[in-house]
Design a protein around this nucleic acid. Sequence first.
RNA 1: GUGGGUGUGGCGAAGUGGUUAACGCACCGGUUUGUGGUACCGGCAUUCGUGGGUUCAAGACCCAUCACCCACCCCA
Length: 425
Amino acid sequence: MTIQRPKGTQDLLPGTVEQWQYLEETMRSVCRDYGYDEIRTPMFEATELFQRGVGQTTDIVNKEMYTFLDKGDRSMTLRPELTASVCRAYVENKLYGQPQPVKLFYIGPMFRYERPQSGRFRQFHQFGVEVLGADQAVVDAEVISLVWDLYRRLGLTQLEVHVNSVGCPVCRTKHRALLQEFLSTRREELCKDCGDRYDRNPLRILDCKNATCQAVTIGAPTTRDTLCEDCSTHFGRVLGLLGVAGVVYRVNPRLVRGLDYYTKTAFEVMVEEIGAQSAICGGGRYDGLVEEIGGPPTPGFGFAMGLERILAALQVKHLLPEEKPKLFAMLVALGEKAQTEGFSLLSALRTHELPVSMDLLSRSLKAQLKAADRLGARYALILGEEELEKKVLVIRDLTLGEQIEVPLNQAVEEIHKMYQRGVNA
RNA sequence: GUGGGUGUGGCGAAGUGGUUAACGCACCGGUUUGUGGUACCGGCAUUCGUGGGUUCAAGACCCAUCACCCACCCCA
């Protein structure tokens, strides 16, 4: 094998693609029911969009972007996430001039230059929702319950929904300062990573997996302690509405999200049993983002979920639908004359939109029947020398092992009738 | 970027220095000329990721290299 696919990418082959289609259809139907419309934006954008939109301090921008210069020396980047793009599209297409809020969803590939591992790819796929132009707590609650509802429809239970409020920029700065002050005396005890995090992003120390860091942070000021009145009221309202919608959640004061743009509500959904990368959905409110990228001040709320990880969860929990046979009948033709006649018969059947197929290797009768069986065809339509002479077609029921002869000139009509019966049964 | 693991036919997998590289699945063909799914028979790796080295002798030992997997970081 000489040329291989790029690291961290995958070929989705028949058998797997059907699972993706099932997942995507379920996502689309939930969105339709909730009144969200699909948006499709470019696979790549000006690098600056992500630098400003996602944030200069984030790992995504610092070390994970697929960036290249195009032939006009413009710096372009394959999209690592879509919230920034959707906001850009909102501004660029003046969607703020339409009835507000604008409720959008997307499904598509994202790109991040990382070392692949279980549940992590360089090209991966996200489904996401963004609501722009409404700062009400109901928005937060509606979007989170949409997520909840999707999982319910997929049969995914026993997952954890973590909710928190990281506050507005004011409470956030306050919290950060308090936290650094709290940790300052015990900074030596922190692990190496947390030492780095102390200056860069002290909030992350709160959810470090290291046991000693966990111990050090006991009693540390949480985001909740520093919320201003507005943020606090908002958060309370969100939780109340989630309760009304029947969403089972857990307030996790240590939940912080890695992207710079989050304000107020942040949430995450985790599933065990799919490896170390257990977050299958993450999102929250981002009231400053649209303005940050040059648009009018516009509140926003959204999330992204990873299709690969959800599929992994559905897999281990055996929640993926079984593949159904797609073929109704298989033409078995023997000899060139029969093949010609059969080809004509198939064409006729196909104009009626019947799922029918034929042997393409001119194999023996036996081999063709075997193939028909493998492909899960219900009927084999046998046409050989004898049948041509008698001007008949043998229709063999492969599940019953019985066969009948019908006049060739009535075959299309007969098969069509059988198909209708099968569909209605 | 760091650490660990693995690399034998389409897939799974024996083999731990010595003649022709097990086996299972899949695939293809056959079991008297035109009837599948079961059974039986046969076929299917001049070769063990790649390149060097040690040795009379290497898939097995050593070195390098590449690829994949897992974990950290971070995230979907």
